[in-house]
């Protein structure tokens, strides 16, 4: 197994995913298999190949600095689980 349970727990924490206890063994196993599978890349003859982030060789376009969006708060907030006074509510953030 290339990943341990602890590894998977750490990854799940980073990704903020709760994994049910009974599903944990399956995740450890399938993720290990995926990691083993992509491990093939380690032998790839990349030499000095340039990393390719985009399929097309283009540059970023510039948008003109103009305000064209209008206030749609009420429309947007119909989708929100909890709002009050125009604010999105979340459980208390403590820092």
């Amino acid at each position: 197994m290339s990943l341990t349970r602890k590894d998977v727990e750490n990854i799940a924490w980073l990704a903020r995913l709760e994994i049910a206890e009974e599903q944990m063994p399956d995740f450890v196993e399938t993720l290990s298999r995926i990691v083993d599978f992509v491990e093939q890349l380690s032998d790839a003859p990349v030499a000095d190949a340039l990393p390719m982030a985009h399929p097309l060789d283009m540059n970023q376009r510039f948008r003109e600095d103009r305000v064209t969006e209008r206030d749609e708060r009420d429309h947007f907030q119909k989708n929100a689980p909890a709002v009050e006074a125009g604010l999105y509510l979340v459980p208390r953030v403590i820092e």
């Binding site: 590894d7 990854i11 990704a15 903020r16 995913l17 709760e18 399938t30 995926i34 990691v35």
Partner: peptide, 18 residues
């Protein structure tokens, strides 16, 4: 996220996170 995503999506998110 745990309840909202299915197993395959979780697997891919975790693969990518890793």
């Amino acid at each position: 996220r745990g309840e909202g995503f299915g197993a395959e999506v979780k697997r891919r998110i975790m693969t990518g996170t890793y």
